[in-house]
Design a protein around this nucleic acid. Sequence first.
DNA 1: GTCTATAGCAGGATAGAC
DNA 2: GTCTATCCTGCTATAGAC
Lengths: 214, 214
Amino acid sequence: MTQPTTDNTRERILDQAERLFAVKGYEAVSIREITGAADSNLAAVNYHFGNKMNLYLGVFHERWLERTRRIRENFFSQLADKPEPTVPEVIGAMARAFLDGPLSDEERLHHVQLMQRELSHPGDALKMVVEEVMLPYNQQLRDLIRPNLPKNTDEERLRLCIISILGMTLYFTFARPAVSMLMGHDYNDQFKSLLIEHITSFALKGLTALKEEK
Amino acid sequence: MTQPTTDNTRERILDQAERLFAVKGYEAVSIREITGAADSNLAAVNYHFGNKMNLYLGVFHERWLERTRRIRENFFSQLADKPEPTVPEVIGAMARAFLDGPLSDEERLHHVQLMQRELSHPGDALKMVVEEVMLPYNQQLRDLIRPNLPKNTDEERLRLCIISILGMTLYFTFARPAVSMLMGHDYNDQFKSLLIEHITSFALKGLTALKEEK
DNA sequence: GTCTATAGCAGGATAGAC
DNA sequence: GTCTATCCTGCTATAGAC
């Protein structure tokens, strides 16, 4: 009675596929493993998605994209009552949305890992990731920050700054095992707060480099 | 006559394995593909390395590690005539060593891609990468920078800054396709110079966040 | 829409000749 | 050290019963 009898199988497959693709990577995961974890039949993937690659793209279109929407909503809701947010407010909201936002720790990790794979080993989903998510999000961040910068700020340098800030934030997420080893402790709530604080202050100062162009 | 008749096959396999593992990832590459590209026999991998995973680890031990050594040497040689380098000199040398150092563009990309894979999808080589390379390199950077910071600088915050700077630099290397799309142009020499300049100034300013702890 | 069965193939690994 | 031949496993994908 909980579900209106609609395709539960398809959803379970998408859930498990996202998790497994994120953790192990596309080639390392077999359809057998996915359907096994989803408690469905081996043939279900081919029935619902045609083939394995299509399932992978389906994960991006039907799961990953929806998550980015939630992250972005969280980001904007933090700024909702601020018609003209300051730079630290913008950066802080961004870092919080990514590191402590609406996703569970596991979701967040999988989300960034999937993105990460496409960025460093471009595949069929990269174009979508960049054009539908990264480009618009980068632009929105620029537009929010630019009013607080000198009028003659170089557009190209501003873009580099935004990429740096996002790159830094992503890095702290996907390289979590390495960061833990380097810092000598786990990703608990206290450490996440420290990270958000660090990213905000580091990026805020970093942006001041824009004010001193010759 | 060029080579003293020693195991040329083994070396060719390592070369091609590194390239292919970096470009496609461990699971996506077959032994057949590697030995084919290396102009050697299918059985050569098993003869020289025992199995596929051992070849992968061999790539890290016999190729990847050697490259990090060259990058580090390049870094130190830039600072050789400066007994007490300033912060921008240290950061600039680091960025140059990574983005425009002793490696060819292709080598550099493969090098960072391999590292990237281990960081975001931890495997058998991660421990080695972190313990033998990242930990000591992070520490060396800290030791070079600390003398230029206030005495009471928080060690943990300094660590986070170093990780941020390296993360940013790595990001600009491995996410090259995405960065190109976001910036609207290619990675030519001019753009690399701009990147080095950007990283140096952004990181220099970012570090000033350490001076204002309450 | 779900399942079984199986085709058809590619993969890692090894044995044994040279 | 190199090569061929081969084993065996596991994969994707599909056909066809239910």
